[in-house]
Design a binder for these strands. Sequence first.
RNA 1: GCGGCUGUAGUUUAGCGGUAUGACAUGAGCUUCCCAAGCUUGUAACCCGGGUUCGAAUCCCGGCAGCCGCACCA
Length: 590
Amino acid sequence: MDTYEKIIGLAKRRGFLWNSFELYGGTAGFYDYGPLGAMLKRRIEDIWREMYVIEEGFYEIETPTIGIEPIFVASGHTRGFSDPMVVCCGCDSAFRADHLIDGIVETPDALPAPEIKRLIDEHGIKCPQCGKTGTFGEVSSFNLMFRTAIGPGTERVGYLRPETAQGMFINFEHLFRFYREKLPFGVTQIGKSYRNEISPRQGVIRLREFTQAEAEIFINPRDKTHPKFSAVGDTILRLYPASQQEGGSGAGVVGGTGGADGGITEIAVRDAVNQGIIAHEFIAYHLVLTNLFLERVGIDPARLRFRQHQPDEMAHYAIDCWDAEVLTDRFGWVELVGIADRTDYDLTSHTTHSKHDLSVVLEYDTPEQVERIVVTPDMGVIGPRYKEKAGKVLAALKNLKEEDFSGDEIKVEVDCETIAIPRDLVEYKTIIEEVRGEKIVPHVIEPSFGIDRVIYAALEHSFAEEIVDCETRTVLRLPAEIAPVQVAVLPLLTRDELIEPALKIVQMCRRSGIFVSYDDGGTIGRRYRRNDEIGTPFSVTIDYDTLDDDTVTVRNRDSMAQIRVPVTKLVETIHEMLRDPTKFIIQSAQ
RNA sequence: GCGGCUGUAGUUUAGCGGUAUGACAUGAGCUUCCCAAGCUUGUAACCCGGGUUCGAAUCCCGGCAGCCGCACCA
């Protein structure tokens, strides 16, 4: 049994993750979060919110999970997200149709389906599987987006969003106003996205419905420094730069090249930026932030790396792109987060398709004085004289430079013909103009988190089996702040005189916002083990001493050590220890 | 989507043509003064549909799901 099986088994048994629709046989690519899973997920999302929304100040928005077709035409998902497929009738194998005609035309992926089919037939392409010719059926396209119809009757096409990002891009104008027209600013969204994967088979690693936490940070393309970079520049990251990766496009979503440590460089981000490994400070800052988040939710730093996309792997518009990857037992390196500089691609594309200008005026600190020539031709004369050419003459005159006005005549070229215009018909003067700013399309830095994968990785990296008194103890060493159950309250024995005070302590904890579970089944040892397995960081045990001196035992999940705490100080102590579990170690040493 | 392998309580497992065995887990009770102890007792399963047969968990066919390869993975 490998670790993956153990984790999924534990998750299923204890109510973290269940395969969806199991009552009706189940369907690949969908998972339910059970009681503990949903709690874990919410705590992880809340940490993300704390770091991105509160600390970075990137407000969170919420947009529909269904999008209308034009959005995905603009984003490229209706084209780029669909693959032409063709099936060989001889052996029933399916192939990417455009790959079959690679080398015959320059850009096979840009052709419409019937054209690809025609080329396959015309060139007598053999089936790579069975070697026969002329056995291919029609070329059909498989789009990874779920398609649906909006409204009754003549339906309007809608798609379940394949990423949350577009909802933020298309609100750019509102957001820019909201942020009082200043760059940079960021916006976030946590929500479901949908991709109709052909064969999702890696549990929660590849889902058809999944949760993304994305931030879109709109920045000035001329200035990709980060105001807080100096504070994080010394951070050491484990980088796996493109230059270190061998063999073509490197890793896919799952798997990946390189051994556990192959090609990984531990380097301060400041040096990585200075050496040109990371494109600029803004990306580097977000690598650091991602690193902080992942470590905080329990990812083992030794099994974490940042892998840079190779040039041929990166979307054509992106400048630099890094994936935070974790090492898993079964799947090798798995991508959890992508951090990309998407440049102005998204806003420019939405500008073109929506016909709304999404550029912004960036005001200079001090307005610039610019010298400019203003040409004012006497159109009352020029118009009748040149008739249909008058418009072009006007345009040509406006483009002239100062030295062109020196002679008695002004020569302009219109339709390959030189026309001389008397000097006195054209007035020109030099003015000093104040330019307050310039129009730019902001660039976008996008950290995009796959929350479900983060959850799986946190489970796997915190999973431990250790031998205690010849028995295997299974323990999830989840960070205290993401553990679903924070405290277990346990009477030492199942006796009324202990149950009663225990229930009072449960009430006390709940009123102060601590999530507790109460358990009086079986023996105390069994209950400790049960709580270890779901990662409950602390247990409070009520025994006969409690009745005498009003103190209880607090037990720590990881060390199994215990301290005694007066009931009056219990809530305060627990809050402190949840915030900083080392408090327990300090107290237990006393 | 293709090929191979596999589907028995929550988990794991026995049964390989005569209506399902055990373990762990779990509920109730007893016992128990700190790490999965013990005793009593309860709940709980043949993936779905068709066929062959007097009779199918078992044999055959189809579907669904899982795993492993191939392909795919903005």
